[in-house]
């Protein structure tokens, strides 16, 4: 792989499968990993709020025996004083061995990587990419569906600004997905450049669109829900009109396959009814849990320790 993880294609299929393998091994044998990053420092630069991603990276580094510095709010950094991202990164290179960053501007991690001697991990850039959520998703799929290949996946909700969807769809395409079904309101459709990318590079994958999840749920192996954000709409009326049409509830789940799984990068707002949380097919909370293990695997890979130590 390249030295940095900026977008999903920075990892080959073999590298992804190895990360999944290590992520599973960490769960079985955590003691083997708990001092691998002793003496190493992870800089956690969150220019935008986060709960799961930030704390799962923090937990991952702590469980590897390493240390964390950084900020969870850009207002407490020199970015507030107008410092350029490049300067922040140059300085943080002196203080850390690896940098995890989230930024509201799309392409910011790529810019950071151009000025960094230590590995940069993109923890989400605007509506663009979120490759470590994708790794989390893949570990979850591998756990529950045994293979990453040949699935029919419904992607539901905000497909336009949903960075988790953008990263996931590009990566699953590399693993011979059977079909993608895109379920979103007209205002939040998947960007055309991603559809073009899929058609050019993976013409064998079927891509379909549906207005309602219930119309297609019977054929779906993986239901990937995302949050529809109120601020994406010009007026509140449109938002209210649409928000419930993408609600996944008990009634809709009756039509889903017995071995289907429901995923969500979280946080959810009102797209998944609480009444289905106990359905064994709903794996979104364990999905968050898997995020720690895959991030542990990724950190060891990028710092070249443990299973990734050079001989």
């Amino acid at each position: 792989m390249s030295k940095h993880l900026i977008e999903p294609n920075d990892l080959s299929n073999e590298e992804i499968l190895k990360l999944i393998e290590v992520g599973k091994e960490i769960q079985v044998n955590p003691k083997k990993y708990n001092q691998l990053c002793s003496g190493k420092i992870l800089a956690s630069l969150f220019f935008e709020p986060s709960t799961r991603t930030k704390f799962s990276f923090d937990a991952a580094m702590i469980r590897l025996g390493g240390h964390i510095i950084g900020f969870a709010d850009a207002n407490t950094s020199s970015a507030k004083k107008g410092e350029s991202l490049a300067d922040t990164i140059r300085v943080m290179n002196f203080y850390s061995d690896i940098i995890v960053m989230r930024h509201p501007k799309e392409g910011a991690p790529k810019l950071a990587s151009e000025y960094s001697n230590v590995p940069i991990i993109n923890a989400g850039d605007g509506g663009h990419n979120h490759p470590t959520q994708t790794l989390t998703d893949l570990l979850t799929i591998s756990k529950y569906k045994k293979t990453l290949e040949n699935h029919t996946i419904a992607l539901v909700g905000d497909l336009k600004y949903g960075r988790t969807v953008h990263s996931l769809i590009k990566t699953l395409a590399k693993f011979n997905s059977k079909k993608f079904i895109l379920v979103s309101p007209d205002e939040l459709k998947l960007p055309s450049f991603i559809i073009d990318y899929l058609k050019v590079n993976y013409p064998e994958i079927e891509i379909a669109e549906a207005r309602y999840l219930e119309d297609v749920i019977e054929e779906v192996d993986i239901i990937y829900m995302t949050r529809i954000q109120k601020e994406r709409f010009f007026n509140e009326g449109d938002y209210i009109k649409l928000k419930n049409s993408f609600l996944l509830n008990k009634e809709k789940m009756k039509k889903a396959k017995k071995d289907a799984i429901v995923m969500h990068p979280l946080p959810r707002v009102n797209e998944i009814s609480y009444e289905i949380d106990d359905d064994p097919r709903c794996v979104y909370f364990d999905q968050s849990n898997q995020g720690v293990f895959i991030r542990m695997a990724l950190i060891t890979k990028m710092l070249e320790v443990g299973d990734y130590a050079s001989c």
């Binding site: 350029s84 799309e106 392409g107 790529k110 810019l111 000025y115 605007g126 663009h128 450049f193 073009d196």
Partner: peptide, 28 residues
């Protein structure tokens, strides 16, 4: 927003309108 960012645009389509993809955000 960042003066250090100098995007390179790659030609994607040239039928009718020209469309270029940004090296940072990948948008057209």
């Amino acid at each position: 927003t960042d003066d250090y960012a100098k995007p390179i645009f790659t030609l994607m389509k040239q039928n009718g309108e020209l469309e270029y993809q940004c090296s940072y955000c990948e948008e057209i």
